[in-house]
């Protein structure tokens, strides 16, 4: 019970701020200070969301599929890459700078190229999501592998552990918290990445729908799409957080009381 009330106290400032902003926004829109076609009122956005719901869900399904494929492939690729790079120092030296440089290229600049190379189907979208989600996870894992105490590795070696056993029992579990931090960032990138690539061409998806309603000047509908993207990203991050908590029960146990001398 106490924990719940603590949670409420902690989140109260954020909730009040959010509510105040929405009220202010509604007031500004209604007063006519900003024309409705430029900034639709929150109520108008919610209305658009309700009336458009079936269409939005249809497009969201496509976007989510691209995001899920992209994120899935991104995770696998990042795991393979980080593990191999950790094992062979030469590969680490060869690829780490390239990985950093690749992250400075703006997504919006490569997206049209990908469409040019791969057409208007799902593949350029998935590729873009892979490119954006790969990096945070790979870097997280690499840092995690490196965070292991050298003495722990010496101890494992002294117990006769093989390299694979050291990886399995020490290195990988130690990297898990870092992995999940990266995954949380990547999960939010995944949806945004898919939407950005849909802007540049495609047949369906939230990004495609967004450009359509923008061209029709239906800004209430466009805001509804943005709101939906925010909700989906938050849900994905919450899902990652849930998996994180479930897969690392020892983090929770550590907060309890200590026993004995």
């Amino acid at each position: 019970m106490r924990k719940r009330s603590e949670n409420i106290t902690r989140n109260l400032p954020a909730a009040i701020t959010l509510i105040l902003i929405v009220i202010l926004w509604e007031a500004v829109s209604r007063s006519g200070a900003v024309p409705a076609y430029m900034l639709p009122a929150p109520t108008a956005v919610v209305n658009a969301m309700i009336s458009d719901f079936p269409v939005l869900m249809h497009h969201a399904a496509t976007t989510l599929q691209e995001a899920a494929w992209g994120l899935g492939i991104g995770i696998l690729l990042a795991m393979a890459m980080a593990t191999v790079m950790d094992r062979f120092l030469v590969l680490n030296r060869a690829f780490y700078p390239l990985m950093i440089i690749s992250q400075t290229i703006p997504t919006i600049a490569i997206a049209p190229l990908l469409v040019l190379w791969m057409g208007f189907g799902m593949s350029p979208k998935i590729t873009l999501v892979v490119l954006t989600t790969f990096f945070p996870i790979a870097v997280g894992l690499l840092d995690g592998y490196r965070s292991v105490d050298e003495d722990a590795i010496d101890l494992m070696r002294a117990m006769g552990a093989s390299r694979i056993q050291i990886f399995r029992h020490v290195k990988f579990p130690a990297a898990l918290p870092h992995f999940f931090s990266g995954l949380k960032v990547s999960a939010s990138y995944a949806v945004v990445g898919a939407v950005i690539s849909e802007w540049l061409g495609g047949f369906e998806g939230l990004g495609v729908y967004m450009t359509r309603v923008k061209k029709a000047y239906s800004f209430d509908k466009m805001f509804a799409v943005i709101l939906l993207i925010v909700v989906i990203s938050l849900l994905l991050m919450a899902l990652v957080e849930l998996i994180r908590t479930l897969s690392m029960p020892w983090l929770k146990a550590g907060r309890g009381a200590k026993q004995g001398k």
């Binding site: 029960p249 020892w250 550590g254 200590k258 026993q259 004995g260």
Partner: peptide, 8 residues
């Protein structure tokens, strides 16, 4: 059945 962080 405890985790190391629970011990002194």
């Amino acid at each position: 059945g405890q985790y190391p962080s629970q011990l002194s």
